[in-house]
Computed example of a mutant assay.
Amino acid sequence: MDTYDAWKNFENIEDKDTTAILGQCWRVFDAIDDYVTILDLDKRIISANHSLLEGFQVELSRIANCKCYEALWDRDENCAICPVEKVLHDLKTHTIEVENRRMGKTFVISASPIFDDNNDIVGMVHVTKDITDRKKSENALIQVRAQLEARVAERTRELTILNERLYAEIAERKKAETGLIRRSAELDLKSKTLEEANIALRVILRAREDDKNELEDKVLANMKKLVLPYLEQLSMSHLDESQRACVSALQANLEDLVSPFSQRLSSPLLNLTPREIQVANLIKEGRGNKEIARFFNIALRTVEFHRENIRKKIGLVNKKVNLRSQLLLF
């Protein structure tokens, strides 16, 4: 039994026009990717969308009129952090983030009140969004940053040791110059050793800087290519206010993470916007303008506009150079 049939059974609607309108509404309700349930004031499930039924592998007939925590989480009592309790208390929308270790997933859970024409609460909408992939991406970024910091710390330790050795040798040299003037040959040898140590020190410093720059290049390039374009698409999807705020916060935090080194990079592709990077990737795959327009569901003129911007940013203005051939070089 789908949610539309379940709603008809609960409400016993007889008017065909009303039934048709509600049918359309509940088909939209079923199309939502997030897990959505409608609860009464006793936290009993009135209805649930297709995503929830499929995700929990249950039928609506089995969970209808059951407490949500009994039907979905196999608990004997309400969850201590459940936002539904807060909604009943202050009649406002509440959102929490929960890690479900049994399912191995992380969710953002929100609950919002439903009011009747007299502005009295008659039920609640409970939305559970799976953010497991997003959390994995965040953890991956944290690991990359930790690795970078570990490498910097290791290089710093190496430089400290080399500096200590250098200072020790300099002190020994001064002592030898004061008391052992006749040992000029030995001092010359020590001077040569110090020169070699200085060369090695410069090499290590240069290698450290190169390694750090390479890692920063990769982090920023992967961020713009693999993360930001999909965050942009996510931000343009049908999100509620709290979800949109989470996406905006994530975008801002990611930009803060890479901003200390983003201005130093020289690759022309890093100047592209997330959408331009997506278009450039499809051009590299040999996709035509019409195919790209269908892929993103945008106008052909918009694709042409993105192509022109890409040519400008990689230095192909007024040049008879194939854009795809040039992109394949990066």
Rank of each mutant, 00 (worst) to 15 (best):
E149Y: 07
I81T: 05
E11G: 03
L201I: 04
Q263D: 10
Q243Y: 10
H126E: 15
L205Y: 08
V247F: 12
V28H: 15
L228Y: 06
K129S: 15
F107P: 01
W26M: 11
D34V: 03
G123D: 07
L88G: 03
S266Y: 10
E308K: 14
S61I: 13
L226F: 07
C68I: 07
I45P: 05
Y230T: 03
A280W: 00
N163K: 11
D130N: 02
G55Y: 07
L189G: 15
E99I: 13
R157E: 07
S267I: 00
A140M: 12
L272P: 01
L72A: 06
C82Y: 00
M223C: 10
Y230K: 02
F305T: 01
D188L: 14
D40H: 08
K192E: 13
R206V: 11
R134Y: 11
I204L: 15
R44F: 01
D90K: 10
K129I: 11
D34G: 06
L269H: 00
P260I: 06
L265A: 05
E209D: 12
I310P: 00
L226S: 13
I121G: 09
D30T: 01
A64L: 08
A64K: 08
A171R: 08
L228C: 00
R202Y: 11
L72H: 03
D33G: 03
K86F: 02
G286D: 13
D5C: 04
R182V: 07
D30A: 06
R301F: 04
W26S: 03
T37E: 03
Q278I: 00
T132S: 06
Y69T: 02
V87N: 08
P83S: 07
C79L: 05
Q143M: 10
Q24D: 08
N281Y: 02
P274R: 00
R183F: 13
Q251L: 07
V219A: 12
N9W: 04
A200M: 13
N289K: 09
H126Q: 14
N65M: 06
I292Y: 03
K175W: 09
C68T: 05
K319R: 15
R44P: 04
V152R: 14
A150N: 12
E308G: 11
D90C: 10
K190G: 11
C246T: 10
F115D: 03
R27N: 11
Q143C: 05
R311E: 06
V28P: 09
I283M: 05
K105F: 04
F56M: 03
K319H: 08
I46F: 10
P229Q: 00
R311C: 12
D5S: 15
R183P: 02
K312L: 12
A150Q: 15
S266T: 11
E291V: 01
E70G: 04
K175D: 12
I283H: 06
D117S: 12
G315M: 03
N289G: 01
E59A: 12
L39P: 02
R244Q: 11
L234N: 04
V28R: 13
N253K: 15
L60M: 12
L39V: 05
E195P: 02
T37P: 02
K190L: 15
L41S: 05
K320R: 13
D2N: 15
L327G: 03
S112C: 02
S191G: 13
L52G: 02
Y69N: 01
V144A: 10
E169S: 13
Y230S: 00
T37V: 07
I181N: 08
F305M: 05
S51Q: 06
M1I: 08
A80K: 15
C66K: 10
T193H: 12
